[in-house]
Design a protein around this nucleic acid. Structure first.
Lengths: 223, 223
DNA sequence: TTTTTATGAAAGCAATACTATTATATTTGT
DNA sequence: ACAAATATAATAGTATTGCTTTCATAAAAA
């Protein structure tokens, strides 16, 4: 996996950026350190000026890559979904049995990303924390319909459709395959958030994880 | 229900406001019109200055009620959860059968709030739209742990616990009653959001609603 | 009728979220 | 090696945000 990703490039819809951050040293530094800074101070308090001073660059240079911090968040989200889609495809590709395949898929999309694969300048486990805490802000805006039309959420929607297909493979007449798919994906993130900030309304511990919960839920529903 | 609510007062944790908006004409106008304005322009674009000019009041007067727009959002969210809890209690109180009770509860928390009960200055159906689109921003912040300790999310958590109790009534040994409860509540909101903005990844129409989806899901899981 | 309380008007302030201009590196093509 | 193109930096500027402060006035309560 590590090897493959060093050859492949994670591909983000290109209307999100003004200049592809993957094509320069400064661009990569922007991505790398924006992840750390957003994680540290939160998206609301994050500014291009602060990021610029962290990486020794001028604010105006950052605006050449992204027209706003909102677009940067869209970029980070898309990158994460593309990375997750990659894991999903690679790790389930060779599984023939439909039930095993779906179980594996649920595991992949609901697990806590705790390790950085170190294949690039992007730290996936810190990015995962941003996805849990901030990513929904990328679509909870008044611009969502316009941006959806512009294709900014394609990768995300593709993952949902992949999960849907795996569900329909097992139960072709299930009416809510898409709804279930999005509930697993978004619900997984939310359950991890609750575990960290509202533990009194979760049931998780070492042996009982969101992955178990969703696996059981899906099994009972479509089998 | 309408009658009862005209006697009862929806109670919001009192540390959220500086001065209780229910105690004055201006206070009520702030709540009433903030709901319309946030719905119209979105929480990010909403300012006390804009609200002030809508209601013919000075910005500085609004700050006497809420120390920030974030606190106002917390207030609106808490108000909504308190209102929902009220519906939940009233509408399920007299149901003896545990399964019927839970089914009714799922219906209440996942249904689209389309009508304004007109018992007060608060338009519940517009407030519901704010809950769907903006409420998660009230806890997706760096202040969440401090605010949780201060009790700002008590009403929300109480609803989850009420749902948990209903689930455990049916299946006392179920390990994920709280997880399931929060998945229903939050998932319901998210599914309504998707229906409006990402319809291509939902399965809903007139006959297939989020309520049906979650009802089926829960039935299969705990029965 | 005093005095307390609520609201309004105006000004001020540091920070945000950018844009624009000009200068200086750095890279690239010939 | 040199000119041209491109990328980055430095500086300044702007409207708006998210408040706070001060002082004046109006309304309500003691």
């Amino acid at each position: 996996m590590k090897n493959l990703l060093s050859v492949l490039k994670i591909s983000v819809p290109d209307k999100i950026f003004l200049k592809d951050p993957e094509t320069s040293v400064l661009g990569k530094k922007i991505i790398e350190h924006s992840i750390f800074l957003i994680d540290e101070i939160g998206f609301e308090n994050f500014t291009f000026k602060k990021l610029g001073s962290k990486i020794g660059s001028n604010e105006s240079s950052l605006y050449r890559y992204f027209e706003s911090k909102h677009k940067l968040l869209l970029y980070l989200s898309s990158w994460y979904w593309a990375w997750l889609e990659y894991q999903l495809v690679i790790e389930t590709y060779s599984i023939a049995n439909a039930k095993d395949k779906l179980e594996k898929a649920i595991h992949i999309v609901t697990r806590n990303v705790e390790l950085d694969s170190n294949f690039s300048h992007i730290n996936e486990s810190v990015l995962y924390k941003i996805i849990v805490n901030e990513s929904s802000k990328s679509f909870l805006t008044k611009k969502v319909d316009k941006e959806n039309k512009a294709g900014y959420f394609e990768v995300y929607k593709r993952i949902i459709v992949r999960l849907e297909q795996m569900i329909l493979e097992i139960k072709p007449d299930y009416k809510y395959a898409l709804s279930l798919a999005s509930t697993i994906l978004e619900g997984g993130l939310r359950q991890h958030f609750l575990t960290e900030h509202f533990p009194s309304i979760t049931n998780y511990n070492k042996n009982n994880t969101p992955t178990h919960f969703f696996t059981q839920l899906v099994k009972n529903t479509i089998q």
